[in-house]
Design a protein around this nucleic acid. Structure first.
Lengths: 210, 210
DNA sequence: AAATCTACCTAACGTTTGTTAGGATCGCGA
DNA sequence: TCGCGATCCTAACAAACGTTAGGTAGATTT
């Protein structure tokens, strides 16, 4: 009867697998906006230009969809940060590296894809089984930051008493929280990243205590 | 037939209004754990020791319940931080004040009440109408931090080029994100607050750039 | 040309959802 | 003692939920 509407306007998973990718893009966009439980499979299907039952041709069910969205989200940020660090000139300092990593994280988080922000938003609401499955990918990304901070400590660039795990969590937490208020019309992710890196590297005080 | 089970073991809203308070405590606990849409009114009622339909004697519907939970959550943190600042000795520095405010925020967030953490978790998933209604309370709390940072700037304690709004958001964002990993068995909120205040005041670098 | 496979559709299932209506049971003031 | 509001109950409603079964059109393979 009616030909299927083709609304494929450039999502994050574009290019290599029509149906599956369209579903994941639609799911990510809706999950990000409304949360996990509030988004019905029929809504995802409609956004992807198909009918509710058709999702089961590509996925085993709702949990498998959200699982794929979560994994993809972390992976995208991980790849972006990896690439940014790899592209750094050899003479770059560790401050530069931290700055570059924060910038890449923010860029991927804020402007690139719905998957990344869906991740931050809905991870806490998803069934425990899904959260468990996502843990591996998540830990791998955290390890990247741990390595970075460890190298900085070894190089003697960081303050001696610093708790690296806490610092890593504070930084990533602050970066991810920008999702709740960031407005691309008022500031670029790059500018934001510079300000945040500066904040974390030097603190807010004028006179350093030590 | 069966007498109603009285499961009132010391929630945050305890003491002044049995039914309403029991409902709000139950709702906050469940919202925090599962998100907004995933929690049914019947589940809230069961947790509060009553039947689904009975909620409508106290609230107009689900939106009014979550609205009350959100407002109460912000208010609790606001009051805690207010009290902490008021209790400061007159000779306290502005660094001390920021430390005290962060500590009070974390204490209220992590150990005191489910309302506060439900707030951080579900604010993004709630219907737009509810979010709008919560805005006033939210802005009032942000103003408290803006005042604090403004005073620090006026006193000349902060770095000249600092974007105060960004600093406030980074700090509160990092504090709230502790909800996702904090484990009271491994660290006290007070210790965490000290570490975070230190982190934000002095940064992570050993050698200050300026 | 026949058979197979892929990608979707339609229609239905049992359950759960928010919400409403119409009682019960109780303590308290008159 | 009577009535009355407050508090909670039971039972039902239509709508929406995740999921399943079976069918169909078009491309690909044989």
């Amino acid at each position: 009867m009616a030909t299927r509407s083709t609304k494929q306007q450039g999502g994050a998973t574009e290019g290599f697998d029509g149906g599956r990718a369209r579903i994941l893009d639609a799911a990510a966009r809706l999950f990000r906006e409304h949360g996990y439980a509030a988004v019905s499979l029929r809504a995802i299907a409609a956004e992807a230009g198909m009918q509710g039952g058709s999702l089961y041709h590509h996925f085993r069910g709702k949990e498998e969809i959200v699982s794929a969205v979560l994994d993809l989200g972390i992976l995208r940020v991980h790849e972006a940060v990896d690439a940014a660090l790899a592209g750094l000139p050899p003479e770059a300092s560790l401050s530069d590296a931290i700055h570059a990593a924060a910038a890449a994280h923010l860029e991927a988080l804020l402007s690139h894809s719905d998957h990344t922000s869906a991740n931050v938003r809905i991870f806490g609401q998803v069934p425990a089984r899904v959260r468990e499955g996502n843990k591996t990918v998540r830990r791998a990304y955290e390890a990247l930051w741990s390595d970075l901070l460890d190298r900085a400590v070894t190089a003697g660039a960081l303050r001696p008493g610093l708790d690296r795990r806490l610092a890593r969590r504070a930084l990533i937490g602050a970066l991810n929280a920008t999702l709740e208020w960031f407005d691309p019309d008022r500031m670029s992710p790059a500018h934001l990243a510079t300000a945040y890196a500066d904040l974390f590297l030097h603190g807010i005080l004028k006179e350093p205590a030590r």
